[in-house]
Computed example of a mutant assay.
Amino acid sequence: MRVWIAHEVGRGLLGELPPGLTVEVCDDAATLPSDPAGVRFWVPPFTSRVRASGLLPKLTGLEVVQLLSAGADNWVDHVPPGVELCDARGVHDASVSEWVLGAAIGSLRGFPAFARAQQRREWAPGGLRPAPELTGRRVLIVGAGSIGRAIEERMAPFGVTVTRVARTARPERDVHAVDELGSLLPYAEVVVVVVPLTDRTRGLVDAAFLAALPDGALLVNAARGPVVDTAALVAELGSGRISAALDVTDPEPLPADHPLWRLPNAFITPHIGGAVSGLLPRAYGLVGDQLRRFAAGEPLVNRVVDGY
Rank of each mutant, 00 (worst) to 15 (best):
R137I: 00
N221S: 06
G238P: 04
A245N: 03
A275S: 13
V83L: 07
F41Q: 07
A88P: 03
D73I: 04
M155K: 02
P130C: 08
L213N: 06
T201W: 03
E152C: 10
G90E: 15
G145Q: 09
V178N: 04
P112T: 05
T47G: 15
V139G: 13
V276L: 06
A223R: 04
R116L: 11
T249F: 10
R137W: 01
E298F: 01
A295S: 11
G182K: 13
R170S: 08
R137P: 01
L59Q: 03
A169P: 05
S95H: 05
G278K: 07
L32Y: 01
L140G: 02
D229G: 00
G148P: 00
G136Y: 09
A223M: 05
T230K: 11
F46L: 15
S34A: 14
F114P: 00
R170H: 15
L85F: 04
N265V: 00
D179F: 06
P299E: 10
R11I: 12
P125Y: 07
P171Y: 08
I147L: 15
I151K: 03
V23M: 06
A166D: 08
E298Q: 12
S277T: 06
L263T: 09
A30M: 02
S34G: 14
G216Y: 13
H92Y: 04
I151T: 07
P270I: 02
F209W: 14
N265H: 05
D73R: 01
V178D: 06
A156W: 07
V305H: 13
A29C: 14
D87Q: 05
L140R: 07
A117Y: 04
L17C: 01
A217K: 09
L101P: 03
V195I: 08
W99G: 09
W99M: 10
V178M: 14
L213G: 02
F267L: 12
D87K: 01
A117K: 02
R164Y: 08
T269V: 04
G216W: 12
R154L: 05
G10H: 00
S97D: 08
D179L: 07
V205D: 11
V175Q: 15
L67W: 00
K58T: 09
L55Y: 05
G110Y: 14
V165P: 11
I5R: 06
L101T: 10
A37N: 07
D250E: 14
V3K: 02
R224I: 01
A232N: 06
G307F: 10
E122A: 12
R2D: 12
A235D: 15
L254N: 10
F114S: 14
V139H: 15
G203S: 09
T31K: 14
D247C: 09
Q118P: 07
V178F: 11
W4F: 05
A150G: 03
L62N: 08
A37S: 15
T60Q: 09
P259N: 12
P214D: 13
L263G: 09
A103R: 07
A29G: 11
V39S: 09
D174C: 04
R137D: 08
S183E: 10
P57G: 06
V175R: 12
Y284F: 12
L280V: 00
K58G: 04
G54F: 07
E98Y: 01
A244D: 08
A166Y: 06
L55M: 13
H92V: 00
A207I: 09
W75A: 00
S107M: 02
G285A: 09
T22D: 14
V191A: 11
L219A: 06
G136K: 07
A244M: 04
G71L: 09
L254V: 06
